[in-house]
Amino acid sequence: MNATAAPAVFAPWTEPDAVPLIHLNGVTKEFGSFTAIDNIELEIFPREFFALLGPSGCGKTTIMRMLAGFEDPTRGTITIDGKNMAGVPANKRAVNMMFQSYALFPHLTVADNLAFGLKRSPMPKSEIKGRVDEMLRLVQLTKFASRKPHQLSGGQRQRVALARALAKAPKLLLLDEPLGALDKKLRQQTQFELMDIQEKTGTTFVIVTHDQEEAMTVASRIAVMDEGRIKQVATPDRIYESPNSVYVADFIGDVNIIEGSVSLVDGEKAELQWTEGARPIRAMSGQGISTSDKAAFVVRPEKVAIATTEPTDMHNRVQGTVEDIAYLGNMSTYHVRLADGTLVKAQAANNRRISRRGITWYDTVWLSWSDTAGLILPN
């Protein structure tokens, strides 16, 4: 019996010899006295699906506009495919951009929308129809070639816009909130279609989004931004499991945050003194914490167990009262108020019918978590 080789892991950022497609070196962008981008260093590699994630006004769209050539850095350099982009206009870059509005021509058919940019490119006219047909197959819209945009659904228009952006085979495709106009279910379906198309074409995608779930789903790596700075760049699992700051932990997904002071640091382990008379919280040590520092313990609700009896085998255990329950179908989130007023959330899978569950409002319960479930981070 022949053993099947494991698929190669895509992680060029871990390879010392890998050459990035995009390099932002000390890039700052100022609009008058306002600093939109503050001395950013960033590398994005070929074939990556890279996400710029952050709240409105954090600078992610400004980075995209500088990559596209619509804005110039105030200081620093942007390199794409080894070439300094200083002075290179947008139409001379191997970059295309897909806007949230899709910007399709309403009077043109789907096929003509795809051909529009190709007719103004150096591509021989004899090759344009073949390229249009190839793009229609890629986005599974061949039978809609003769329709006009108003005859398509939102998801189909999104795919036409994507095909048009990819038709000229750019080395870099910029996507500005590309799924923002779609309803939640279609948005989730389209995320996987985007990933499949990106993998098939091998084009480097950079997506701007404020939707954490979207970034976690599609991206090979995520840059979490705030106030013009990059807080952390890592794979989705590392961003979620090992955030480097309370800001990142709080921005990505749901999290409990308990503030206190560091009472012990021992290698990868640490303890946090958080309220008078309570045993210290044991957790993993985040970077840059020292004894007596102000810090915060962060733990995801799904890593917190809830029970009606005291789990004496767990060091991290606290008692409280159920204040609220959010029923989410496959799971429930319990909001538990501790004696000192701290609110802690715990999640439990709904593997029983509602009538058979043992915890309800105003019950006294115990919450517990392992010593490796959370992190103590600088605050």
Rank of each mutant, 00 (worst) to 15 (best):
V246E: 15
Y247N: 09
A249Y: 04
F251T: 11
G253D: 10
G253Q: 07
V255P: 01
I257S: 06
I258A: 04
I258K: 03
G260P: 00
S261G: 02
S261E: 12
S263A: 15
S263D: 11
L264C: 09
G267P: 02
E268W: 02
E268S: 10
E268I: 12
L272W: 03
Q273K: 06
W274Q: 07
T275G: 12
T275A: 15
E276K: 10
E276T: 11
E276M: 15
E276I: 12
G277P: 02
G277Q: 09
A278G: 01
R279S: 01
P280V: 04
P280G: 05
I281Y: 03
I281T: 05
I281K: 07
I281D: 07
A283I: 07
A283G: 10
M284G: 05
M284S: 09
I289R: 04
S290R: 14
T291G: 06
T291E: 14
S292W: 01
D293G: 14
D293I: 15
A295C: 07
A295R: 03
V299K: 08
R300F: 10
K303A: 13
K303G: 06
K303Y: 07
V304P: 05
I306C: 09
I306H: 06
A307S: 14
T308Q: 15
E310M: 15
E310G: 05
E310Y: 00
T312I: 10
M314G: 03
M314N: 07
N316T: 06
V318A: 06
V318Y: 00
Q319S: 09
G320F: 04
E323A: 13
Y327W: 10
L328E: 11
L328P: 00
L328M: 13
G329Y: 00
M331E: 09
Y334N: 08
H335G: 05
H335N: 12
V336I: 13
V336H: 01
R337T: 09
L338G: 03
G341D: 14
T342L: 07
T342I: 05
V344T: 01
V344L: 06
A349W: 00
N351R: 13
N351Q: 13
R352W: 04
R353S: 00
R353D: 01
S355A: 14
R357K: 06
G358E: 15
I359E: 09
T360Y: 04
T360R: 12
T360E: 11
W361N: 13
T364W: 00
V365F: 03
L367F: 02
W369Q: 03
S370V: 02
S370H: 03
A373M: 09
G374M: 05
L375P: 01
